[in-house]
Design a protein around this nucleic acid. Structure first.
Lengths: 350, 350
DNA sequence: TTGTAGGCGTTATCAA
DNA sequence: TTGATAACGCCTACAA
């Protein structure tokens, strides 16, 4: 593979000039530039970015640490990051952590070993390096997109999960629902806790006893939504509204309700969170809270670019908007509160 | 940030010894090793992988090029790649191409610029560098996981989409279906074409006129499945079985059927492809063809490791198994074809 | 077993 | 505007 020296020889100039032609073409006389460009084309030369990075002391890589990629939210988030990374000439390294501390720390280590310039973190756990906060050396460039402990002052991007969740409850309350059950996400996640707080806040605001609301803990999977409803029904929790901490669980929950012969929304109104595309085509289409997934990734990457540019300045927080999407899975509360049976899920109008 | 020289000074040895301690600890006397390790710990030293790569002439990065990450199949595929990459000490770079030739070529360029050692490609397009096949310099290390033009001899991993699709048709045929419609994926993709061929092959094997089967082209999205069914119904294509080239379209198709008041499977049996997890919780649960998504990624990465180890040897093809998953969206063909409202079992499109 | 020294391919600092 | 040349941090013959 040709290197800068080969180009210099072929073009009859010094390697310094070739380097300049590459980085500051304006500083090279046009005829010289042309010779160099010809040589580059002829030898099909590509600068060795390892060497460039070694000299420039940066890699132009940003590592994105996510707990799992089996997740539409993650996909969208990564897509957003890619969008702005690409036009900034930054490569995105994907690190899957399984929420394993050692694994996450090893990815953070890639910053120290110059394989990446910074990290965007979408995980419930935090790197040891950040938690310990060694006072002398500054924390590595990290942007948070999920966990946000109060003590730390890292740049972060998020939505107001609390208010968004409260708005979902409010939507049900305004339809006359008073018995509202909740399926939470994994409660070791900050986001899940926030959404739960929001659901409870919504109940409280409506004057409903939030401490008596039936609450089941799920883990964001379809199966856990399904199981949660079975559990609620077995406990005879008599509810007409069901708030799920994400759409995937809501879809699982709807499957369980159908199986139990409970009509949606005539028997139970179901609302989800995230506006997954599958929700729109469910039976019936799912009412949900739309959160800006791609935009979250874009904002996170912009924050990272800021931070890389000026590590001190970028201590910011970005809060993105949310939006209620009403579809047919939610409707007026039945007058008599009893999960009736044998009604086939019917109808939808796009 | 500390470098190897700092360690050498602190440990009172030469940098060569430190380097050895890192790469071949056995070649260093234990007491010396201890001093070095102590120094490394004290200075919190991490080797600069850019410099290591420059010397060793490799990056230990593999780039994975995918058209989009908004796709459960892609997610699983990448997960599989990560699985085996991690234990091989290889980092995975994710490149999203949007199926854009220039973008893909720019990712391939990362191999020439030493940012990555090879590429795993899950896309319908191929790099210019591969297509042109410059006779002198060998093609860059690329593993194919989707497109597989006969002319090329790159390592590849895939499933037998043709036979798998035929098996789906056979499943319907054995239930007595004779009027079977097909929704294809984007036909510019090899995989879509294969699945279509397989559907047609299945019809032919059953003695059904495959050239008269109603066929609508979709693009693998929920919406396109929905639209396709509307189109079929509008054309009065009178079918009792519906083969979709992926689950996502099948779910969209089911939504459209429900909307039209057609029962599933009593009016129309629907089968999909991929065994998406959402299919199991659909209404009714979707019959589908399970393909080994994670395993495909794992196999692709193993092929890549082989290729990196010995570029000449690794000209192989791996074909992975598939499995029919029967759920409630498919059932016996109705004896009299009159699903719900407003539909006659006559006429056809193609 | 350890040390010396010459690259790996670039960039950047000086002079010229 | 161009050219020498010294880093960047590490690895690896080759010597000792």
């Amino acid at each position: 593979m040709a290197n800068i020296k080969d180009i210099a020889e072929l073009a009859q100039v010094s390697i310094a000039t070739v380097s300049r032609a590459l980085s500051t073409p304006g500083a090279v006389r046009p005829p010289t530039l042309q010779k160099i460009e010809a040589a580059i084309a002829q030898l099909n030369y590509r600068p060795n970015m390892l060497a460039v990075g070694l000299r420039r002391r940066r890699s132009d890589n940003v590592i994105v640490a996510v707990p799992s990629i089996f997740n539409p939210f993650t996909s969208a988030f990564v897509q957003g990051i890619e969008n702005v990374a690409r036009e900034a000439g930054i490569r995105v390294l994907l690190g899957i952590t399984d929420s394993d501390q050692a694994l996450l720390d090893s990815y953070v280590g890639m910053i120290a070993s110059k394989q990446a310039d910074g990290m965007i973190l979408l995980d419930k756990i935090l790197p040891t390096a950040v938690l310990q906060t060694p006072p002398e050396n500054p924390a590595p460039p990290i942007v948070l997109a999920c966990e946000y402990p109060p003590g730390l002052s890292l740049p972060r991007v998020r939505i107001d999960n609390v208010e968004a969740a409260a708005m979902l409850v409010n939507h049900l309350v305004r339809q006359g629902h008073t018995r509202i059950a909740v399926i939470t996400g994994p409660i070791d996640q900050n986001m899940s806790r926030d959404r739960l707080s929001g659901f409870l806040l919504g109940l409280k605001r409506a004057g409903l006893a939030s401490d008596k609301a039936p609450i089941v803990h799920g883990d964001f999977t379809l199966q856990s939504g399904y199981d949660a409803v079975r559990q609620l029904l077995a406990a005879k929790a008599g509810f007409t509204g069901l708030c799920c901490a994400n759409d995937e669980m809501a879809l699982g929950a709807m499957a369980a309700l159908r199986e139990a012969g409970i009509a949606i929304p005539d028997g139970v109104s179901v609302v989800g969170f995230d506006n997954l595309r599958f929700g729109a085509f469910a039976s019936p289409p799912l009412t949900t809270m739309e959160v800006p997934t791609v935009e979250t990734g874009e904002a996170a990457m912009r924050l990272m670019l800021d931070m890389l540019r000026d590590p001190l300045d970028a201590n910011r927080e970005i809060i993105l908007p949310y939006r209620l999407v009403v579809r047919q899975s939610s409707g007026p509360a039945p007058t008599a509160v009893k999960p009736g049976k044998a009604k086939k899920p019917r109808g939808q109008t796009s």
